[in-house]
Design a protein around this nucleic acid. Structure first.
Lengths: 205, 205, 205, 205
DNA sequence: ACTTAAGCGAGACGGTACGTCAAGTCTTTCT
DNA sequence: AGAAAGACTTGACGTACCGTCTCGCTTAAGT
């Protein structure tokens, strides 16, 4: 996939002012962290970015999509290093490392509100959800599948298991707890999820 | 718990007009299905219910809570029969039955939009999330734990497994797929989740 | 008819906030004198009056009508004394007095811009023109006709002359010069108009 | 003076695109008749004329002046024949002929809206008024004075009468009725104005 | 039974933000 | 260098709702 690409391109994109674009995305990301998605307004984004409202409406259909693009920029910037998941040969340890990192990210106050906003906006915006799936979710999913596939080839994972399902068994409970706040999201919890997912709920033989 | 009870009770509840209350909750539930949560407005609810705006503001703090109460009424109405989960002795079969029912409910177009609205509103409203956890989530969770506890006592479940975690391992992937639309939500998927959760991801001995 | 009455009355006028109404009319009149009619905006009126925009849109269809109402209030306030035109028995002297007063009023910087605004707005707004004719023009016209009628009965005016036409012959040139700025508007000019209108353009017999 | 000349000439006029200029003036004149002066926009003129906005801003300071130039072009086109007023020797008849023609012009639906626009724009734009006075009003006024001067020399008009005033006594009431819509503008009205202006309001000796 | 105080439908109010339109400026590309 | 095209900032438009606030009215409770 290499680097993701922005979503919007309705008018003549060559004439576009790149400085305004960055200012808008930065303003949107900062503001959503300050006031939350519901109270985020196009007017406030425009004012903070020093930009006319029309410039936002010209290139984006809604504040949700603006925010999504802000995430895209963020993940592009972070994707510079090696994106692969760790592989020490110890599957359980590696998964715990990654899930603990996920927990930390979800608990990071800088990302919490924007991440929640993105997730809930997707819920009501199928088109946005599709773009998300393609541009952000799928590349991450592929990395996760990669790691599991290697484990499978090493005989550490059941040969019949669908890798997408396996990923969902591991990350689903975390995301769920985070979105629904049905319990604390800790490193220990991450560990338990990994252990339980690998071993299964049935009693040990 | 028997029947749940409404959340609000600030003024003198004895003088409250029950007809208006029902009209408001019905209007809110219907409207959210028609226009979505974001475009749901107090004014529209009041107009549809034939009620003054103040009557809504008197008893509810926000449209999110109105909607939540509408769900409460709904679940009260359904809670008339035996609420317990099926127990045929075959844990795997029973879980598949229940998760398939969950899938059907999530896919039901009548509940889809309101359910999404409730879930996303909780994401941004911790107070609502707490009430949800107490009034709707926890009672359900208890029923699920009950069934698993009986399985544990029957030796069909690992004795050390935390029951809350077990529930999350089973339901989390479903809810996640539904909220994020990362894949189709089918009966087969429910079956696979149950099988994988019980057996674990590791290869069979 | 005595005192004129405000134009607007669409919603339930009994609930109307009189303080807001006066504040709006005052703000509109002041602002038009400061920035002119073209640059007069509903937003500025609302801000100056300390009022929501909707309160203006609720009761008036356009800024032109707001301004018209402001004039109505003004003329109500001035209509307290005896409105009749002077009648000393000397028609020519009386007309000069009145036309000189008209000249002074048109040249008064406090009224100049608002008066121009009212006049030009009427040009493009037939409905407003009709209301103006009924509420402001016609009462004034009647006073003027009255004075001329008395002169006619006293044999100072041709018996066949149409009084409306006579009024137009006297006031028309003044108003025209004022609106079109085709020449200076002075007391001497008023005098010459009166003399010429009475005597006619033909040579003296 | 022969043919009037356009107002604008700021940049290097030799490089100017004449086709664009005509297209702009035509578009402005047509549009003002369709939507009125207030709703006339530079953008719409540019679009209709197939011209960039900058081309308008380069050569004209405001839409009012564009419109004015459009009138100039119109009057140039009409000024091809003999511009003098009729002179049959019968002053009253000639004036009636001319004023009836004026009435017809003012009532012509093709010119009504643009003419009103021009008049009201002048009211708020002294600079435009001055240009109007010089380029359109004064040449017409001179023609009218000419005819009256000949009548004066023939002893048909009072020798002391100021000719500008006389013109205003004749045309003022008409223009006024037209702008203020205070009464119907008919040929009969024109006749009465001429008769009254010539004879005066006083009783016949 | 008669006051009296609350809930109620209604809707005006001061506001905020919406999404659109046009203003006048600026830059790019073509002629 | 003029012109067509069109992106840009600015500001006003007229609308939708917000949450608060009277206004009369019904209605149940407490004398």
């Amino acid at each position: 996939m290499s680097h993701a690409q922005a979503v919007e391109e309705h008018p003549d994109a060559t004439r576009r002012n790149e400085a305004s674009r960055r200012a808008i995305l930065t303003a949107a990301f900062d503001l959503v962290g300050e006031v939350g998605f519901t109270k985020l307004s196009i007017e406030a984004i425009a004012a903070r970015a020093g930009v006319g409202k029309q410039t936002i409406y010209r290139w984006w259909p809604s504040k949700g999509v603006v925010l999504f693009d802000a995430f895209l920029v963020l993940s592009e910037d972070r994707a510079s290093g090696d994106p692969a998941l760790p592989d020490t040969g110890d599957l359980e340890a590696d998964l715990k490392t990654v899930l603990r990192a996920t927990v930390d990210e979800l608990n990071d106050p800088r990302y919490e509100e924007p991440l929640r906003a993105l997730n809930t906006e997707m819920v009501h915006n199928p088109e946005l959800a599709a773009t998300y799936a393609e541009r952000l979710h799928e590349p991450m999913q592929e990395l996760k599948r990669d790691r599991l596939r290697r484990a499978q080839q090493a005989g550490q994972l059941d040969a019949d298991t669908d890798l997408d399902l396996a990923v969902e068994m591991l990350w689903g409970p975390l995301l769920n707890r985070w979105l629904q706040r049905t319990g604390p999201l800790t490193a220990e919890y991450a560990d338990r999820v990994v252990e339980t997912a690998l071993r299964g709920l049935r009693p040990r033989a």
